[in-house]
């Protein structure tokens, strides 16, 4: 069994605040891991360490068999240059809570920017891929719109298409529906479910318990910088062993 994501005893502090207190987590290729937990439990920070937006203080993380942010040579780990880190990130898609689309670029330009500038794809090919992806998220007619002309749900679907344009081997979602009006949550979750059914490896931080139950292969419950409990949804969500998991679920269900 090879893990697509392999996190070993990851620690991270912001000043005196210890956000991650030793995380071990493996996600296999094709698997969907859903991370649940109260706010401040460190789940977003954990997600951000996977593509090196945050650097861990100790421990290590590897994605697809290669270390994130470091290169091993003999008995030393060399920190990667920014350019190499950026290169690594093209293999990892990231979808933000607040979309972070580029407001001065059209939907099409948002999606083609990274393939053209980071992967040096020919523009024509990038535009074709973008068209296919837009159709896949149900926004084929919005290519020339600007992000501010779209609803939140549409913007998040564009953001997902933008992440997919790099053909990543791993997708990370940081509370992808938390900034959306309730009636728009469904359309975004449907897109993510679709990706899950096609065997995309994903780590999803969310508060949507129903989504976790339906899509997750593994549910990870975090609290206070630690993983409290993990396992298939039928165990963690329906028969939690830990009292903290029970307490959390009783509040959100």
């Amino acid at each position: 069994m090879t893990a697509m994501v392999d996190i070993r005893s990851a620690h991270k502090s912001f000043g005196t605040l210890e956000v991650l207190r030793g995380i071990d987590l493996q996600v296999r290729a094709g698997e969907v891991a859903v991370v649940l937990g109260p706010s401040g439990s460190g789940k977003s920070t954990l997600l951000r360490t996977i593509n090196h937006l945050e650097k861990v203080d100790s421990g290590w993380i590897s994605v697809g068999g290669s270390l994130v942010g470091y290169r091993r040579q003999g008995n030393r780990l060399y920190e990667l240059r920014e350019r190499e880190v950026l290169r690594q990130r093209t293999r990892i898609g990231f979808v933000f809570q607040n979309f972070h689309l580029f407001p001065h670029l059209t939907v099409l330009e948002n999606i083609t920017e990274a393939p053209v500038s980071a992967l040096r794809r020919p523009r024509k090919q990038a535009v074709e891929t973008a068209g296919t992806l837009l159709a896949r998220v149900g926004l084929a007619d919005k290519a020339s719109a600007y992000p501010r002309q779209l609803s939140g749900g549409q913007q998040q679907r564009v953001a997902i298409a933008r992440a997919l344009a790099l053909e990543p081997e791993l997708l990370l979602f940081d509370e992808p529906t938390s900034a959306l009006d309730p009636e728009l949550v469904g359309e975004v979750l449907d897109v993510i479910k679709d990706l899950a059914h096609q065997g995309t490896t994903m780590v999803v931080v969310t508060h949507e318990i129903g989504f976790a139950r339906e899509v997750a292969d593994t549910v990870v419950f975090m609290d206070d910088g630690r993983i409290v409990e993990q396992g298939p949804p039928s165990e963690v969500l329906d028969r939690p062993r830990e009292t903290r998991t029970k307490a959390f679920l009783s509040k959100v269900l």
């Binding site: 593509n51 950026l86 980071a118």
Partner: peptide, 8 residues
Amino acid sequence: AAAALGIP
């Protein structure tokens, strides 16, 4: 977002 997309 630009950093996450690996844009130089």
